[in-house]
Nucleic acid binder design. Structure first.
Lengths: 225, 225
DNA sequence: TAGATTGTTAATCGATTAACAATC
DNA sequence: TAGATTGTTAATCGATTAACAATC
């Protein structure tokens, strides 16, 4: 009995977890197209990765493929969904309903992929009480109550950088254990809290880096190396 | 002469490039606070990384620190800025001015960190001609003209997933060489084009994965291992 | 000179990938 | 059985980090 390990015991590499989300998205399109079976080669191609990597990624979840045949689209979809914890419900709060926050509040891609924004919060008294996308905006002062009432575990942070750490602290105090940070600020959280960040300007700066490399390469070519 | 290598010749690891953007952001706050000198230990702490990693990252750009003293904030700022190609101007087009696109068009974080959205494009005839944030919305049919006129090299893609590849192809044909994709779709581009993606729902799914791990761990603890 | 801190080395760690035995 | 494709091994590659010689 003790060597029949629960897949949850196995450590799944971070890089793999990130790709599982992509595989799941691709599998959803296959389900929609009523595709029954898919090979690692096909799925990998559709996900933009190497097939060995895909098989290795899937092997962390267990053996759900059939040699000589491939993977059952629906089964694999369910397994990945389960591995990502999407079979249990996670309540999400969105903090900061400014420019970016409002767009995130209305973003259809969250709902279609398993997330519902249960609550909106903001510090601006002019926004508190307003209704956005059918949900009322609560005051950040009530964060403890709101988090408890909606059993919120995940928060999306879209507040100005200079208040991000303070708001983050309040969320953690209220019991939030995962934070997705859009504020361009480095946040520190206790060990039991997971933190991810999306830095929009940094993404453009990374592209800018490669742009100038390409420009330099083009220069060198013209100059005749 | 030939062994005085241009820093551009040295390959900078991808992971380093991504962090350079963070260092630059932290350095900007130090400039604002009139801090003159910073040690790798201090800067690393502020950026949320290990100091050895920071020094190794900076070493790819050259030697701009002074042993026993640290780094001159302004000089280092300029060097990183230069390395990221921010001293040359990159024109950005935003394609898809729906929910998310409008938020990105109005996002202050781009301008403050060196990027100007030079043009907006959309396929919806009801939006074409509209003025958003002082910029007129062009038709995607005019992408070739718009890209040429504004010398655009970078495009931000915020269109629905099912048209993302098509729009991407048109951008590439028009001469765009870097694309930041917000559409939940796997895109393929020619080798000379750089592609980065931001998958908002995937970010939540990754957090969900860790949430369910934490829940399972808490369960195991209660059950008494 | 003594103290501090960089830049670099080398060891370690984690992720990728080709190759192929297992097996449907 | 023959053909196809998985799951896994082992080699390789790239990134991280501790440690310290170089040097301000």
């Amino acid at each position: 009995m003790s060597d029949l390990r629960d897949p949850r015991d196995l450590r799944v590499p971070d890089a793999t977890v990130a790709r599982l989300a992509t595989y799941l998205r691709v599998l959803s399109t296959l389900v929609d197209r009523s595709v029954v079976t898919v090979s690692s080669e096909e799925l990998a191609h559709a996900a933009g990765v190497n097939s060995a990597k895909l098989r290795k990624d899937l092997s962390y979840l267990g053996s759900y493929g059939v040699r000589g045949v491939g993977y059952d689209v629906r089964t694999l979809s369910e397994q990945i969904s389960h591995a990502l914890g999407l079979s249990t419900h996670h309540e999400v709060a969105l903090v900061g309903v400014g420019n970016l926050g409002q767009a995130l509040a209305g973003y259809g891609g969250f709902a279609s992929r398993g997330f519902r924004i249960a609550a909106l919060l903001d510090a601006d008294p002019r926004l508190v009480g307003a209704v956005i996308g059918g949900r009322i905006v609560h005051s950040v002062d009530d964060v403890a109550t709101v988090v408890k009432e909606h059993s919120i575990t995940i928060a999306v942070l879209a507040v100005p950088a200079h208040v991000a750490q303070e708001v983050c602290d309040r969320l953690v105090d209220a019991g939030v254990t995962s934070i997705l940070n859009f504020a361009p600020a480095v946040l520190s959280v206790p060990e039991h809290v997971d933190l991810r960040k999306v830095d929009l300007a940094a993404e453009l700066q990374i592209l800018s880096f490669h742009e100038s490399r390409k420009a330099a390469a083009a220069m060198a070519k013209v100059a005749g190396s």
